[in-house]
């Protein structure tokens, strides 16, 4: 079954995450603002990528990586027209023009460069075709997606990144059990300190923002920084306790009061079994 969708709604990061976690094999076809591209995956690893607009073959890749001169690339192209990348690689290595390691590295670099460019495609369409792998005769590589996702995310525009890293503000923060650096050795801004002072499993990020009159963007940015620095961790919010949080505003108080009333009804196993029996016979 092909997975289809729009990049505006379902971004590259999410797609790569899915492909990685589900260890998928197949090809991801993309149509974005800069044209088309396809990425091939084998068991969740990126093995090949190329963009449709430029017909890039191995000599071009090697030339861009500085492993072949323009002249060398032209000669290879002319003499080996129609031959596969793999054949060209064999010939170049056997003739002593380059080393195998150069080929491997250059291909990897090309594939990664393309993928990182694609990260900025926030509109267009995608289609994932399982089991399709148009890599006959190509030089393939094998790149773990975790790192690609990390680096690609780093290069994303700030807001998008923050949105993805922190989809919900209805979670709480706690101090990391083993912070990489002790808090006193970290230079924090006033804004960051204000957030830090409200870190408590009882306060959701949303509430912290309200206490400090911060916009969603401000709070996301600060929390993201604190998470990256390993100072705090995300946890599910604890049930609000009876004790007052310092500086809790009226609005937040109302919210807390409302949410405490949603309790689980006190039911016995027997009731659930009766439900199950009845629904089975519907």
């Amino acid at each position: 079954m092909a997975l289809k969708g729009n990049l505006k709604d379902f971004g590259i990061t999410q797609l790569l995450n899915l492909i990685n976690l589900a260890r998928k094999t197949g090809t991801l076809y993309l149509e974005g603002p800069e044209g088309t591209a396809f990425l091939c995956f084998k068991e969740g690893k990126l093995v090949y990528a190329t963009s449709g607009s430029e017909d890039v073959n191995l000599p071009t890749v090697l030339q861009r990586a500085g492993k072949l001169t323009a002249e060398q690339a032209r000669v290879v192209q002319a003499n080996m027209a129609g031959r596969s990348d793999r054949d060209m690689a064999m010939m170049l290595i056997q003739a002593g023009h380059i080393q195998q390691q150069d080929v491997v590295q250059s291909v990897r670099q090309y594939v990664l460069g393309l993928v990182y460019r694609i990260f900025s495609w926030n509109e267009g369409t995608f289609r994932f075709e399982p089991a399709q792998l148009p890599i006959q005769g190509k030089m393939v590589t094998s790149i773990a997606l975790e790192n690609v996702i990390m680096e690609g995310s780093r290069r994303l525009k700030e807001w998008e990144r923050l949105q993805d890293e922190l989809p919900s503000l209805d979670v709480s923060l706690k101090f990391a059990e083993k912070p990489t650096t002790p808090l006193r050795d970290i230079n924090l801004t006033v804004e960051e300190w204000r957030v830090i002072s409200f870190v408590n499993p009882r306060n959701t990020i949303q509430q912290i923002a309200q206490y400090n009159s911060m916009t969603e963007f401000q709070i996301r940015k600060i929390v993201y920084g604190l998470l990256q620095a390993g100072i705090v961790e995300i946890i599910k919010p604890a049930r609000p306790a009876a004790t007052e949080a310092p500086g809790r505003s009226q609005r937040v108080e109302d919210q807390v009061r409302v949410s405490t009333k949603a309790r689980r009804p006190d039911v016995k196993r027997g009731l659930i079994h009766r439900l199950i029996d009845r629904i089975r016979e519907l």
Partner: peptide, 18 residues
């Protein structure tokens, strides 16, 4: 897929209610 993010948000919200 354009509704998945919204679904995730709804899921989180209800999980927090109860």
């Amino acid at each position: 897929p354009e509704t998945f993010r919204e679904a995730q948000r709804i899921l989180e919200t209800f999980r927090n209610y109860s």
